[in-house]
Design a protein around this nucleic acid. Structure first.
Lengths: 122, 122
DNA sequence: AAGTTATTTAGTTAAATGCCTAAATATGCA
DNA sequence: TGCATATTTAGGCATTTAACTAAATAACTT
């Protein structure tokens, strides 16, 4: 279960255009790692730092820092293989966060019904 | 439909502890407006700026600024009645955002299945 | 071992954020 | 009209964020 500080960290991470775009592309398979071009059937959801950086005008260290932040927020996973780092979506976190929103909306509707029960009956 | 900039604005708004707490309390009925104490059956989801400010150690202008940001992000609604401003949750925005997460997770699972279809068949 | 590739760390800088106090505005009430 | 209440605006200041370049680290390749 995500606690408040974890949720805030996720929102902070996604509240920046560059990181939001990385998030979007990592989760929808928008990046293809040049290394994986030879063997494209690895995963549509796997890429490496420099491949992501190629999609931006920012320097590599800047993108690297953004990726660290996304990882610390639990949005992506990073796995070192030889001298490259593979980035993958962490679907669990997003599923959980989505569940929080769904639950919030459900509870809200229920509360509203309960609260205005007698008003409706009038 | 929320566009990218609108989503980023929402995440920016919720990526701050004070605003997150306001959001949480506004949506779960955590605030009771002192004015509404006499007539408590107004709504559990309605309050005013100074009531919210009482829950924090920050100054009124600071809370006012946070509320403006939450409103600009479409998270809350503010309605002036006489000389007070009533704050209410904007459930539509949260429902939409929740829907985006749900859809993202669904698409992700579908993609994964599609992509690894032949791998699974082996 | 030396060079190449991939990534991170360190240090600097400009802009944005989040807070404050004081003053302004807007409405209500006597 | 004049005082009280509710909220916002303005201006200032400290901290954080997001970018950069240069240098360091780590692992592969010849």
């Amino acid at each position: 279960m995500l606690d408040m500080q974890e949720k805030i960290k996720i929102f902070k991470a996604l509240g920046n255009e560059t990181r939001f775009l990385i998030f979007k592309n990592v989760f929808t398979g928008g990046y293809v790692c040049s290394i994986d071009n030879k063997n494209p059937k690895v995963s549509p959801h796997s890429t490496c730092v420099s491949t992501i950086a190629q999609h931006f005008e920012f320097s590599l260290p800047t993108i690297s820092k953004h990726l660290q932040l996304l990882r610390e927020a639990g949005i992506i996973k990073m796995q070192k293989k030889s001298n490259k780092i593979y980035i993958e979506p962490n679907i669990e976190t997003i599923r959980e966060l989505g569940g929080c929103f769904t639950k919030l909306v459900e509870n809200f509707e229920n509360n509203r019904e309960l609260f205005f029960d007698d008003v409706i009956l009038k």
